[in-house]
Nucleic acid binder design. Structure first.
Lengths: 184, 184
DNA sequence: GTCTATAATTTGATAGAC
DNA sequence: GTCTATCAAATTATAGAC
């Protein structure tokens, strides 16, 4: 679906970084253009409108996240959960940013419907993956537990990032692991 | 600290609604002025800069939230937690919006330092309140459990709101209650 | 594909009348 | 306290040259 143009990829990368740092509304074509070394008019060649850039961002983010999830399907329950948590930890610590879909979800009312639908798909993908994981290892699907895990990790990234205190995320990560271990 | 001017209160209320729906960056003086029936120049009389309006928003939100928390201090553990969860449920369902400090935290990089500090204070207030509650009823303070509760509820509001599925929040709320009950 | 130039709109903010 | 008038800057987006 997505073309492999190198500049397109550079734009997506720069735009994602800015959205995940300050929000979709704060990300401007001029800033992104400056980041990748071209002019804002040239960004419109790759993404005609800001809405289309936003859609591509969420789409690509979801695809990338899903690629990781698929890899985890062979692991046992607790190792899989640890790897899943590591995805969120990477977002917070390595990228020094929050989850793209957390900010897109928070800004939802001001965003185009197409972006909102893709954001929703990201969360549903996470929930379904966890449900299947629990179904496979705990015998029952357990959507409430899946919702608890996704919410706790998404929330932990925001609270931890806003508080500039990584320990908050680490505390929540450990609680999530213990919670699932207690259900096993 | 905050003056009791009726128009000032109306402005704060309208601005909070807009920030919690689409973010601080998307909230404009003109839109807020229109909401309360005055011109944007008049908003500057009450709040000279947008940064000052933002600070007042977080400050007032924190004060209001704290007033609720103080009231809950006489309740037993599980009733107190249920009431605490109800505060978040009210934000999601009645206000049809996410937590002000969740969006302020998510947009942090693009916001003035003063707002970031006040946002951080809000989260710390929540953590300390929960820590004290656990200390009183569980014998030990347990900051990780406090972080888990705050993160799960903040995250649940965002995921639930973005997915337009209230059941996600309700599921997480029930998981939080069960989690704390299991530690009692 | 990228550029210059520019249109059209919105924004935060100020000056000064009332 | 609120208004009109206005400004300077930033924004999304388009047209057309190269």
């Amino acid at each position: 679906m997505s073309k492999k143009s190198p500049m397109r990829e550079k734009i997506l990368q720069a735009a994602e970084k800015r959205v995940r740092a300050a929000g979709f509304a704060e990300m401007s074509f001029r800033d992104v253009a400056s980041d990748v070394g071209i002019k804002s008019a040239s960004v419109h060649y790759h993404f005609p409108t800001k809405a289309e850039l936003g859609e591509a961002l969420v789409e690509e983010y979801t695809t990338r996240f899903n690629a990781f999830l698929v890899q985890l399907d062979t692991e046992a329950l607790l190792p899989a959960i640890r790897s899943y948590i590591a995805l969120y930890a990477k977002a917070l610590i390595l990228d020094e940013a929050i989850c793209l879909c957390a900010i897109m979800g928070a800004e939802a009312i001001g965003l185009p419907r197409e972006i909102n639908e893709k954001t929703r798909t990201f969360f549903e993908m996470n929930l379904v993956w966890l449900e299947n994981l629990f179904g496979k290892h705990l015998g029952a699907s357990n959507r409430p537990l899946a919702a608890m895990v996704v919410s706790a990790l998404e929330g932990a990234i925001i609270v931890s990032s806003a508080s500039k205190d990584r320990k908050i995320f680490d505390d929540v990560a450990e609680e999530v692991i213990q919670l699932i271990a207690s259900r096993a």
